[in-house]
Write a protein that binds this DNA or RNA. Structure first.
Ligand SMILES: [Mn+2]
Ligand SMILES: [Mn+2]
Ligand SMILES: [Mn+2]
Ligand SMILES: [Mn+2]
Lengths: 218, 218
DNA sequence: AAATAAATTTAGATAAGGCTAAAAATAAAT
DNA sequence: ATTTATTTTTAGCCTTATCTAAATTTATTT
């Protein structure tokens, strides 16, 4: 059994591992968890003792298979709870993350399996992120950043890169939601802003926005 | 905000207070929480500092209004989660307590209000215990222990005194469930065991059983 | 190849929550 | 009214998870 703190470390390392082939550095983990490098060193020693990861002083860490599976299971719980909150409890997608951060640490296999069943075994969470299956397998969909689309290209919104409440609320305000079709109408070379058509309306968005919205190309 | 540990102390003291008019002793709390008296002394000092209870050395503790409200709110969450687990997630009444012990500490007013609404604002949990309202008010139903009934008296099962899995599973096995009608057919002076009629069948139960089942007299 | 900078680890502290053993206060029994 | 027993508190120690500051290792520049 793992403490909430241990679980949060495993989750952070797992997420960082998806975006890099090399070992994960102490600083990267400290940064992700808003903690100090010295605290990270202590914790990764403990997780190495528990065979959750491989650690060689100064060389960063790599999750073991057991570590990956454990982390994926926490992420599975997090994302299933997010779906539950949106689908069954009238939460909006910008309200779910903090509560899911708590709920993901509840220990009860039956609980999460029943939630899964109640929801009809969803494959994606409210932010378009895939839900790992019981074995920790995670089938990532083919997706591109909106920023990478060229003029005239079309796609469906399938996910967000930034799940912060401010960004999600901005999307709500602009009428941008997962499942909606967008078309790039124009791109501005000067600041990489782009004009897109969504809901039959043209709106202009900054490059920062376009770099945080995932699209499945049509 | 309170830690899970603080919340568990408040809850324990609240429960003990219901069964006694005097201040709650250090030992009683230690016993209830399966901890040591010295640990209790430390914690009640902290809770006294936070104005959750009144503490005078060697005199036991009494919850303040704030303390009562806080405790009732945790119990409210615990019982609502138990209803949710039974009603929506196919848990049986002997499986819910341990999970509810975890879920009761989740911090999110919206979450528990939505769960409440989803369940149709239930008044009792799966064990017949009343669910405190948002203000911490708790309307106890009129109920008696089955053991107190005389021969020929009838009643409806409305609650259990012991919520342990073993007792609840025993009741399941005997076909005893909340809402069912029972009639006392016979009582044995020697060991206070009694024969009751339930589901149109007569069964004999020990005094210990009869002392853990609540009945609303008919 | 040295010198400097950056990253990482170690050492030492702190806070929460718990424990054991000893001291002190209260309650019960002579 | 003492003595004895029980309860409660205090003192000191432990574990987990943090932190800061100093030491050490690795990486980057000159
Ligand atoms: Mn999230
Ligand atoms: Mn998400
Ligand atoms: Mn319970
Ligand atoms: Mn209950």
């Amino acid at each position: 059994m793992f403490s909430s703190s241990e679980e949060n470390y495993l989750k952070a390392i797992y997420h960082l591992s998806l975006a890099s082939t090399k070992g994960i550095s102490t600083n990267a983990i400290a940064n992700k968890l808003a903690t100090k490098a010295s605290s990270v060193t202590d914790m990764i020693k403990k997780l190495a003792d528990k065979n959750m990861l491989v650690y060689k002083k100064y060389q960063g860490v790599t999750l073991t298979e057991k570590g990956k599976k454990t982390a994926a299971n926490i992420i599975r719980k997090h994302r299933l709870w997010e779906v539950f909150l949106v689908e069954k409890l009238n939460f909006s997608w910008d309200e779910v993350h903090d509560v899911a951060e708590q709920l993901e640490h509840i220990k009860s296999p039956k609980l999460i399996n029943e939630i899964d069943a109640l929801l009809g075994f969803p494959k994606y969470d409210p932010h378009g992120d895939p839900i790992p299956d019981k074995n920790g397998a995670l089938h990532q969909i083919e997706k591109s950043l909106l920023a990478s689309l060229k003029i005239k290209e079309k796609g469906i919104c399938v996910g967000v890169n930034d799940s912060s409440a401010t960004f999600l609320q901005f999307l709500d305000k602009q009428g941008i939601a997962l499942g909606k079709e967008v078309e790039v109408v124009d791109k501005e070379d000067f600041d990489n802003s782009m004009t897109i058509k969504i809901n039959k309306k043209a709106i202009t968005i900054s490059n920062k926005i376009a770099n945080n919205l995932y699209i499945q190309k049509l």
